[in-house]
């Protein structure tokens, strides 16, 4: 607990909590990062699940790299937002669920990324997308949605 109090009182935590623009600027960055991560991954997930079948899968690997950039943006902006109210967030059930969903989404997306590296060219050449890849894509998509739901609920439940 002491660490989270220290974080709140640190220059970063203090700037987020008390400056006029710190919080809105970070929230904007967080929304941009969200669009990049969730948008890019959703396209990859939907494609692997069989939507828009005409589109090549292999080049979408660059889109996953773009998603990682968005993830870094949200890791930094999210940590800063967290620093502003660390003792509050660390006890908030919706926040803890959100972090759990993001961690799991991270694992399934990384796993999907390595499957794409191994098999995407084969799939584009007419090979059938395996059900393990489809399940990973679906779970990545559902976890992203769950993270967004939990994130929004942070503002609504105590």
């Amino acid at each position: 607990m002491e660490y989270f109090e220290w974080l709140e009182l640190s220059p970063l935590g203090d700037w987020v909590a008390t400056s006029t623009w710190g919080y809105p600027i970070l929230l904007s960055c967080h929304a941009i990062g969200l669009a990049v991560v969730a948008g890019s991954l959703a396209m990859v997930d939907l494609r692997v699940m069989g939507c828009f079948p005409g589109l090549e899968i292999s080049p979408l690997r660059s889109l996953i790299k773009l998603a990682w950039v968005g993830f870094i943006v949200n890791l930094i902006s999210g940590f800063s937002l967290f620093a502003g109210q660390a003792t509050y967030f660390i006890n908030h059930p919706a926040f803890l669920i959100k972090i759990t969903c993001i961690s799991l989404a991270l694992v399934s997306s990384a796993r999907l990324q390595s499957l794409l590296k191994q098999h995407a060219d084969d799939w584009d050449g007419g090979g059938i997308v395996g059900s393990n890849a489809k399940i990973l894509a679906l779970s990545s998509l559902l976890l992203l949605c769950a993270a967004m739901i939990a994130g929004r609920l942070i503002a609504y439940i105590e």
């Binding site: 969200l34 669009a35 990049v36 969730a38 948008g39 890019s40 991954l41 959703a42 396209m43 589109l55 090549e56 292999s58 080049p59 979408l60 660059s62 889109l63 773009l66 992203l144 949605c145 967004m148 739901i149 929004r152």
Partner: peptide, 28 residues
């Protein structure tokens, strides 16, 4: 929450289309 879902879907699709229009993602 639906507004966030909608923006992710829309911007995700537009990244692909727009970045390809810009000349990136030429594998697509």
């Amino acid at each position: 929450t639906l507004h966030f879902f909608g923006l992710s879907l829309m911007l995700g699709a537009l990244f692909v289309v727009d970045l390809r229009l810009v000349g990136l993602f030429r594998g697509l």
